[in-house]
Design a protein around this nucleic acid. Structure first.
Length: 361
DNA sequence: AATCCGTGGAT
DNA sequence: TATCCAAGGAT
């Protein structure tokens, strides 16, 4: 197939449309070197690493992904190794990275691929059918790991394209038009490099605020630059206000261990270890939902902002005389850092321990 | 189709 | 400090 030669030949853009040609020439000079990425013009990176990085990078910055990618590939170097891992180990390793449905889907996807022989599908449709792989990720893996021509549209591409063509329609209504425009500039050759070049451009030059148009390789093609208003694009629909909720987290200690629970798979922080909590509501729920009645004392409050609401969590502590089976999981306090708590509960745990330390000990 | 789902860095 | 926003997906 011409796919392989397209990937292997770094000069294959010479006959590409002008925008792609200019962008690929820039990419050959300026590509960011990233642990999961093959250098420009090189053969594609390992599909497992491409897939893992793409899932981690969903709505997540390159800087945040770095050490998680290193740790995951160290512990699970292949898709078969990841498929064989315990769920709790993987969820714990993901703790702090956010959007935990990604970790649950990551496990399911690894097992589906391993069960099918350990090779990822090399076309968009097959990839799209796997858990946690949507339109963007399917296109990205097909292009980056397999050299397929695919229209890869993430938030960077949306911004670059909206500016190039000065698309006035606000997101998300503009998505089909933006995808059509992206299709129109996607070359047949080096589709993976082109996709990564668009994302590098969006991340380093065509930034949301104060884009560095003076050094942009596409300056001669950009309608928004010509009009003098690139920062206006992409237009976006106004977003809803963020409500505030209140809740209580319970730190129950007995014999040097603290009671942890596993949250339900669906909903906030699904599938993660956590401190027991009551409801998260408009009004302060007090001690509703306490794992048992006890002399609860407040250690203070933790503020945490999620995507669609802000939470103020009152952290209360108590010491129990003994452990009851079936309440949850009694975790050694001294090793709480290894429990894989999401950030909200890691903050709450720090506060609880600080308060307990003051009490005496 | 609109809503739900985390976190931390940049501005 | 408050707001924005990032290599989106599932329902």
């Amino acid at each position: 197939m011409p796919v392989d030669s397209a990937v292997a030949n770094p000069i294959a853009y010479s006959t590409a449309p002008p925008i792609a040609a200019g962008l690929l020439a820039w990419y050959d000079r300026a590509a960011r070197r990233l642990p999961w990425r093959a250098p420009p013009g090189d053969p594609p990176a390992d599909p497992y690493r491409v897939w893992l990085s793409e899932v981690m990078l969903q709505q997540t910055t390159v800087a945040a992904v770095g050490r998680y990618f290193a740790e995951f590939t160290r512990r699970w170097p292949t898709v078969e190794a990841l498929a064989a891992a315990d769920d709790a180990e993987v969820m714990g390793a993901w703790a702090g990275l956010g959007y935990y449905a990604r970790a649950r889907n990551l496990i399911a996807c690894a097992r589906a691929v391993a069960a099918a022989g350990g090779r990822f599908p090399d076309e968009e449709a097959g990839l799209r059918a796997l858990p946690g792989i949507g339109d963007y990720t399917a296109a990205a893996i097909a292009a980056i790991a397999f050299g397929r021509r695919a229209v890869v549209v993430d938030a960077n591409v949306e911004r670059v394209v909206a500016r190039l063509f000065r698309i006035e329609t606000p997101l998300p209504v503009a998505k089909p038009a933006i995808r059509g425009a992206a299709d129109g500039i996607t070359p047949d050759m080096r589709a993976g490099d082109f996709a990564q070049a668009m994302m590098d451009l969006g991340a380093t030059i065509c930034t949301p605020k104060r884009p560095a148009c003076a050094i942009c390789p596409l300056i001669d093609h950009c309608a928004a630059f010509r009009a003098g208003d690139p920062e206006r694009f992409p237009a976006k629909a106004p977003k809803a206000a963020r409500p505030e909720r209140k809740g209580t987290a319970f730190w129950l200690e007995a014999e040097g261990a603290v009671l942890l629970v596993r949250r339900p798979d669906k909903g906030m922080l699904g599938g993660m270890r956590a401190l027991p909590t009551g409801p998260w509501t408009d009004a302060d729920p007090g001690l509703a939902g306490a794992p048992r009645s006890a002399a609860w004392r407040s250690a203070g409050k933790v503020a945490h902002v999620f995507t669609h609401f802000a939470l103020e969590l009152d952290v209360v502590t108590a010491v129990a005389s003994g452990r009851d089976a079936g309440e949850g999981e009694w975790w050694p306090v001294a090793r709480i850092g290894e429990a894989g708590l999401p950030t909200l509960f890691a903050k709450a745990a720090r506060l609880a321990q600080k308060a307990r330390g003051k009490d005496g000990e």
